[in-house]
Structure formats: C-alpha cells, structure tokens
Amino acid sequence: MANKNKEKKTASRSRNRKIGNAITYAILIIISIIWLFPFVGLVLQSFRSYASEYGGMVAYLMPKEFSLDNYTYLFSGDCSFVRWYLNTLIVAVCAAIFNTFMVLSVAYALSRLRFRGRTLLMQFWLILGMFPGFLTMICMYFLLQQFGLTQAGAIPGLVLVTVASSGMGYYVAKGFLDTMPKALDESARLDGASNARIAVTIILPLAKPIIIYTALTAFMAPWCDYVFASYVAFGYSKSYNVAVALQRWVWTNDYQGYFTRFCAGGVLVAIPVTILFLCLQKYYVEGVTGGAVKG
C-alpha cells in the first residue's frame, strides 16, 4: 500500500515535471522570439533594396526585394563609413589596452596593498562617482580644446578622456582580487619578493578572467559612445565615430531615406562586437558574478 502510494507519487511528480518543463520551454521560446525580433528586423531592413523601395521607414517587415544596396553605399566613396569605423576601432582598442592597465593598477593597489590614505582615497572617488558625467561635458570640451584635442584631434582626445578617468571603475576588478587568498602574497614576501614582483609574477597570471572582463567592457563601450563623442567632434566629420555618424542619419532632417543605411551600418557595428562578446562570454559572467557582488 505504502509502496503503491509512493509509486503514484513519483509518477505524478514526473508528470508534473514534464508539464513544468513544457511550460518552461514555452516561456523560453516566447522570450527568445521577443529578444531576437528587433535584431531580425534590423537585419531584414538592412537588406531592403534602396533602389526600388527607398530608404525611409516602412510598415512591413519583409523587404519586397533583397539587395546589398545599403552595404554598397557604406563602402562607396560618397560615405566615410570606413573612416568612422576605424575611428571607433582605434578608440576601442586603445581603451581596451590602457583602461585595463589603469584599472588593474588601481584595483591591485587598493585590494592588496595597505597604505596611508587608502580608505580616504576610496571614499573620495566614491563621492566623485556620484556626480553625473554629463555635468562636466562643457568643461571637458574646453580642456581638450586647449590641448587641440577637439574636432581634428577628437579621436586622441576621446582616448585620453576615456583612459584618464578609467581608474575610477576599479570596483569589479578589486572585488575579484579581494577573493584571492592573502597567503599568496605573504609567502612570496617572506621569500623576499618585492611588491612589484608579486604583482607581476603571482597575481597577474591568476587575474586572467578579470583582465579579459575589463578589456572586453572597455572595448565595447566606445561603440555606443554618442554623447561626448559628438560633443568633441562637431563640425568635423572625419573625427566622427560610428555612433555619432549613424545617429545623424536617423535624427537630422538632412538625411532623408537613410534609415535602411542606418540599419546596414548598425549590423556592421554589431557583428564584430557581438562575436567578440559571445566568445568571451565566460569571462564576462565571471566578472559580473564574482566582482559585481563584492561591490
């Protein structure tokens, strides 16, 4: 009797589980459709024929005629898309290299070294971080302008600003370094290794996930930097980055029928960033789970 009951129970439980799983699959599929729909739309629009269907907004999803018109335009002589793309790439690569260096320096110093004024510095930076970034836009602009780093020099200017202030984003990296056992440093120190040596030979190799995480986030940010990039580069189209240039096509009335071209440009921007991100996803997850939680 008892046995039978138990069997029934497990049977009903497995049936319940099956129903539960079916519902879960249904939800996941719906979510996936919602999540992917805009991207599919974007890609489809980018292949709409410019010649036969004009480049403006339309109220249908499937292009009547597929063509590469929009992509050909981006790479034609009429459009500096390649230049804008390279500009963004330069900023992104520089940011990925130098930001990582700055962030790790700060994180290492604050996490594994103890010195006078350490908490004071951290509190000071915490307070600085509470001021909204756009507040200082006009001042930053004129600071850069004094160095000749606006308009024609906007790209080096952007790199400078991005890198210079990157040290404040140390939280995630510090959280990660905090989790490494202190005994690592101490035993090395007993062997007579200097602080610099410990950092380079012991901590650095172990910090690979956080290095990749920092570089990845630093690399991705410039692709979306519209606000400050347009502020420093105004009136000099050779210094635009992709975000600035493509935004203009959508928001300024001077560009009629550029919507499908915008979509094509958007697809080209999204592809490398997405691939890179998906490849390095593992490290990103380690970063957000490990570091972010530690605050």
């Binding site: 006009i138 606006t150 105004f234 009136g235 000099y236």
Partner: peptide, 21 residues
C-alpha cells in the same frame, strides 16, 4: 566644407565660437 545641418549649425557655433565655421 563640412556637412552640418541648418539646425545643428547654430548650436555648434554657440557652444564654441572659436572652433566654429
């Protein structure tokens, strides 16, 4: 010659006359 729309031109000129057109 740079492409700056008629609306943006004024905002940009006002932001920084020295770097303006």
């Amino acid at each position: 010659v740079e492409a700056v729309g008629e609306g943006d031109a004024a905002s940009n000129m006002i932001t920084d006359v020295a770097s303006g057109a």
